[in-house]
Structures are given as C-alpha cells and as structure tokens.
Amino acid sequence: MAKGEETRQFIIEKAAPIFNTKGIAATSMSDIMEATKLSKGSMYVHFENKEVLACAAVDHNVKVLTAKLQAALSKPKTSKEQLFAYIDFFSNPLESPLIGGCPILNFGTEADDTNPVVKKKVNNAIHTAQQLLSGIAEKGIVNGEFKTDLKPADFATVMFAMLEGGHLMSRMSGNNDKMEVIVKTLKNLIDQNSI
C-alpha cells in the first residue's frame, strides 16, 4: 500500500467510529483532525470534503460489521445454528460490535431524508443482510432442517426488522429488556419452523 493510501485508510479508520457515534451532521472535520492529529491541509489532500469522508466512513463501518458477523457465522454447522448465531451477534446493543452502535440504524435514520448517497449505501447493506438471512433459511429448508412452508424472504424481513427495532429500543432505553423479548421470540419462531 502506498503512503498516500495508508494515510487515507488511517483517516477513514479514525473517522468511522466518530461518524457512527456522533452522526454525519454533528461530526466536524475538526473532530477528525483531533483524532488523526493531521492538519486540515493533509485531510483535504485525501478527501475533497466531509461528505466524501463520511461516505468512506459508512462503507468502512459496514465492512467491519460484516466481517465480524461473518466470523460469528462461520462457526455454526447448521442453518438453525447460524440463525441463532446471527441473533446472538446482535442481542446486546448496549455492547455493540462497533463503537456507536449499529451503523445501518445510525446512518439510516440520519440519511433517509438528507443524504441520498448514504441512504443508498444503507439500503444496499439492508438488502445484503436480508439476502444472507434468506439464504441461510433456504439452505435450512433444502437440508431438511426447516419446514418447506417457511418463506425465507419474509422470514428474513421480519428477523432483520425485529433486531434493528430492538437495537433502537435498547439504545434509547439504556437496557436490553426489549431485545431479550425479541431474541426469545425469534428463536421460538425458528424452533416452530424446525423439523
């Protein structure tokens, strides 16, 4: 990696948790300069403006979250175990895998009416997550783990929405009691559709 690319990556890695915690609008280039100890001139050599850096930070946060999730899903052997591992991975929003919480939720709520580029990135991440869940459910049906009347795409939508909603409720209330209900409900739903 060239020196310029290393510096660019360093800035993204330092900026990503700040954007995820404070939001795009509330994060200033001064915040990033303080975290990186780089000058304004050095920052603007690598990023045209804050919006360009914010988009790179969104991509980085989603990439890190995805890598951590994939690591958690690589251990279970069955589709049912993978779905349980997915649920467990997101089961404690107060100790989120990323600083600041779920980037999909954070950036999605901020960008839905204000930033079409970030909105598209978040929508792609949601679609990818639903495809992953749907694929796991489909594999479970093929392998004889789940009932054939389970609708993988519908199940993936419900599971994703419940976990994201639980994440929001937990972060707002400062406790995981609602997420515990959601985790139990989702696992019961998976058990009810298991053979």
Rank of each mutant, 00 (worst) to 15 (best):
A16F: 02
A16E: 04
A25G: 06
T27H: 08
S28A: 09
D31K: 09
K40R: 15
G41S: 13
S42N: 14
M43W: 05
H46M: 08
F47K: 04
F47H: 08
F47I: 04
K50C: 06
A54N: 07
A57Y: 05
D59M: 12
D59E: 15
D59W: 03
D59A: 15
H60Q: 15
N61F: 04
K63M: 14
T66P: 01
A67T: 12
K75W: 06
Q82D: 03
A85Y: 03
Y86R: 03
D88L: 03
F89C: 00
F90N: 07
F90Y: 01
P93N: 06
I99V: 15
C102K: 00
G108M: 03
E110D: 07
E110R: 02
N115Y: 13
V117W: 08
K121T: 09
A125D: 10
A125M: 11
A125P: 07
I126F: 08
A129N: 13
L132E: 04
L133M: 06
L133H: 01
S134E: 04
G135T: 06
G135A: 09
I136V: 11
I136T: 01
E138V: 00
E138P: 06
V142A: 09
G144W: 02
F146R: 06
P152L: 00
P152Y: 02
A153E: 15
T157K: 12
